[in-house]
Protein backbone atom coordinates (compact mmCIF):
# COMPACT_ATOMS: atom_id res chain seq x y z
CA UNK A 1 0.00 0.00 0.00
CA UNK A 2 1.39 3.37 -0.90
CA UNK A 3 -0.11 6.77 -0.36
CA UNK A 4 -0.69 9.34 -3.11
CA UNK A 5 -1.37 13.05 -3.01
CA UNK A 6 -5.13 12.67 -3.16
CA UNK A 7 -5.13 10.35 -0.17
CA UNK A 8 -2.94 12.78 1.78
CA UNK A 9 -5.41 15.53 0.88
CA UNK A 10 -8.22 13.40 2.27
CA UNK A 11 -6.30 12.58 5.46
CA UNK A 12 -5.46 16.27 5.91
CA UNK A 13 -9.16 17.05 5.62
CA UNK A 14 -9.96 14.38 8.24
CA UNK A 15 -7.21 15.78 10.47
CA UNK A 16 -8.49 19.35 10.00
CA UNK A 17 -5.09 20.56 8.86
CA UNK A 18 -4.85 22.99 5.94
CA UNK A 19 -1.96 22.28 3.56
CA UNK A 20 -0.78 24.40 0.66
CA UNK A 21 0.35 22.67 -2.55
CA UNK A 22 4.02 22.82 -1.69
CA UNK A 23 3.50 21.23 1.73
CA UNK A 24 1.11 18.69 0.29
CA UNK A 25 3.76 17.57 -2.17
CA UNK A 26 6.59 17.23 0.35
CA UNK A 27 4.45 15.74 3.12
CA UNK A 28 3.14 13.15 0.66
CA UNK A 29 6.72 12.05 0.05
CA UNK A 30 7.43 11.91 3.80
CA UNK A 31 4.29 9.94 4.49
CA UNK A 32 5.01 7.47 1.69
CA UNK A 33 8.48 6.77 3.08
CA UNK A 34 7.18 6.43 6.66
CA UNK A 35 4.47 4.01 5.55
CA UNK A 36 6.99 1.99 3.58
CA UNK A 37 9.09 1.82 6.74
CA UNK A 38 6.24 0.66 9.00
CA UNK A 39 5.07 -1.91 6.44
CA UNK A 40 8.05 -4.05 7.48
CA UNK A 41 5.58 -5.43 10.01
CA UNK A 42 3.89 -7.36 7.20
CA UNK A 43 6.84 -9.75 7.22
CA UNK A 44 5.55 -11.06 10.57
CA UNK A 45 2.78 -13.61 10.86
CA UNK A 46 0.50 -12.38 13.62
CA UNK A 47 -2.61 -14.44 12.91
CA UNK A 48 -2.59 -16.12 16.31
CA UNK A 49 -1.47 -13.11 18.33
CA UNK A 50 -3.87 -11.20 20.52
CA UNK A 51 -3.37 -7.45 20.27
CA UNK A 52 -2.00 -5.65 23.31
CA UNK A 53 -4.73 -3.33 24.43
CA UNK A 54 -3.31 -2.14 27.72
CA UNK A 55 0.20 -2.06 29.08
CA UNK A 56 -0.89 -2.07 32.73
CA UNK A 57 -2.24 -5.25 34.29
CA UNK A 58 -5.25 -3.70 35.91
CA UNK A 59 -8.79 -2.85 35.12
CA UNK A 60 -10.00 0.69 35.49
CA UNK A 61 -10.91 1.52 39.05
CA UNK A 62 -14.43 2.69 39.67
CA UNK A 63 -14.84 5.87 41.68
CA UNK A 64 -17.75 7.65 43.30
CA UNK A 65 -19.62 9.84 40.86
CA UNK A 66 -18.99 12.92 42.92
CA UNK A 67 -18.28 16.51 41.91
CA UNK A 68 -14.82 17.40 43.24
CA UNK A 69 -14.26 20.75 41.63
CA UNK A 70 -16.44 23.31 39.89
CA UNK A 71 -16.97 27.04 40.15
CA UNK A 72 -13.93 27.54 37.93
CA UNK A 73 -15.74 29.18 35.03
CA UNK A 74 -13.32 32.07 34.82
CA UNK A 75 -10.30 29.77 34.84
CA UNK A 76 -11.79 27.72 32.03
CA UNK A 77 -12.55 30.75 29.90
CA UNK A 78 -9.27 32.50 30.70
CA UNK A 79 -7.23 30.95 27.89
CA UNK A 80 -9.88 31.23 25.19
CA UNK A 81 -8.81 33.15 22.08
CA UNK A 82 -12.33 34.64 21.83
CA UNK A 83 -15.07 34.70 24.44
CA UNK A 84 -18.25 36.56 25.20
CA UNK A 85 -19.61 36.51 28.73
CA UNK A 86 -19.91 32.80 29.58
CA UNK A 87 -19.33 31.49 26.07
CA UNK A 88 -16.51 30.50 23.72
CA UNK A 89 -17.01 32.41 20.48
CA UNK A 90 -16.48 30.63 17.14
CA UNK A 91 -17.13 31.65 13.52
CA UNK A 92 -20.75 31.41 12.44
CA UNK A 93 -21.85 27.76 12.10
CA UNK A 94 -25.45 28.22 10.88
CA UNK A 95 -26.11 30.42 7.85
Amino acid sequence: MSIDKNQVKKVAKLSRISLDDKNLESLSNDLASILKFVEQLNKLDTNNVKPLNSIVDKSLEPRKDKVNDGKIKEEILKNSPDKNEDFFVVPKVVE
Binding site: V38, L41, N42, L44, T46, V49, K50, P51, L52, I55
Partner: peptide
Protein backbone atom coordinates in the same frame (compact mmCIF):
# COMPACT_ATOMS: atom_id res chain seq x y z
CA UNK B 1 -4.29 -3.62 14.83
CA UNK B 2 -1.20 -5.19 13.30
CA UNK B 3 1.01 -2.88 15.38
CA UNK B 4 -0.87 -3.72 18.58
CA UNK B 5 -0.24 -7.41 17.87
CA UNK B 6 3.46 -6.88 17.26
CA UNK B 7 3.59 -4.77 20.40
CA UNK B 8 2.37 -7.84 22.26
CA UNK B 9 5.19 -9.91 20.74
CA UNK B 10 7.74 -7.29 21.79
CA UNK B 11 6.37 -7.31 25.35
Amino acid sequence: LKAQKVRKLIK
